[in-house]
């Protein structure tokens, strides 16, 4: 579960005030809004990469507002994947578990499990510079899921992909969310994407976030 309570922040050209919403447990929430309205800033606040001026961030029932990013139990997939440039795909998948000093056998098993699930087993020994956009996003998703977070934050994860790959990635995201039973907050400005994925639709405009009826997106 992800809950923002009365979040306010002034950042550059925009101000967010009294932003409150909840994405219930095991729900796929989609946050829509025009470019530059502060969607990424909200994701960064939930991740802990930015501090709000006021308000609370609650993840799985715990107030994590003052917790550092690594203690919040969130997985984060940014738009371009933000690969670690010097690491192989295997090392990226293992990163969160190695940071937690988990046994090598557990790390290896998790690598294999994620690689199989995300269809990247053939890429394990490659470095990011040779990967396609879709492959990068799959690796970024696996890296975020490795430590089994309760919450997944996806910041426009498929908007940079070409149309053919988008469909596959949409299906993958939905499947992963259901199988892992994570709460997802997926940021996009694409109605088509939102229509296929959302259990819950949130719309951001003029510094506020409001729930919206999925029917406003039209039929899939």
């Amino acid at each position: 579960m992800i809950a923002l309570e009365h979040i306010a922040i002034h950042a550059g050209a925009f101000t967010l005030r009294d932003v409150s919403f909840t994405v219930p447990e095991a729900t796929y929430g989609v946050l829509m809004g025009p470019t530059g309205c502060g969607k990424t800033t909200l994701v960064e606040i939930i991740c802990g990469l930015r501090q709000p001026a006021s308000g609370r961030v609650v993840v799985n029932g715990s107030d994590v507002t003052r917790e550092p990013p690594g203690n919040r139990g969130v997985g984060y997939v940014p738009q371009d994947g933000a690969m670690f440039p010097t690491m192989t795909v295997r090392q990226q998948l293992a990163f969160a578990l190695r940071v937690r000093r988990r046994p090598a056998t557990e790390v290896a098993a998790r690598e294999e499990e994620l690689a199989r699930e995300l269809g990247i087993a053939h890429l394990l020994d490659r470095k990011p510079h040779g990967l396609s956009g879709g492959e990068r996003q799959r690796v970024a998703l696996g890296r975020a899921l490795a430590a089994k977070p309760a919450v997944l934050l996806l910041d426009e994860p498929i908007s940079a992909l070409d149309e053919d790959m988008r469909g596959d990635m949409r299906d993958l995201l939905k499947r992963v969310q259901r199988e892992h039973r994570v709460s997802v907050l997926h940021v996009t400005h694409d109605r088509h994407e939102a229509r296929h994925l959302a259990d819950l639709l949130l719309v951001m405009a003029e510094g506020c976030v409001r729930p919206a009826d999925l029917a406003t997106l039209g039929a899939p």
Binding site: P69, P78, V99, R143
Partner: peptide
């Protein structure tokens, strides 16, 4: 961004 991601994965 990669540094930010590393922080969400458990790093200081």
């Amino acid at each position: 961004r990669p540094e930010d991601v590393a922080m969400t994965l458990g790093c200081s």
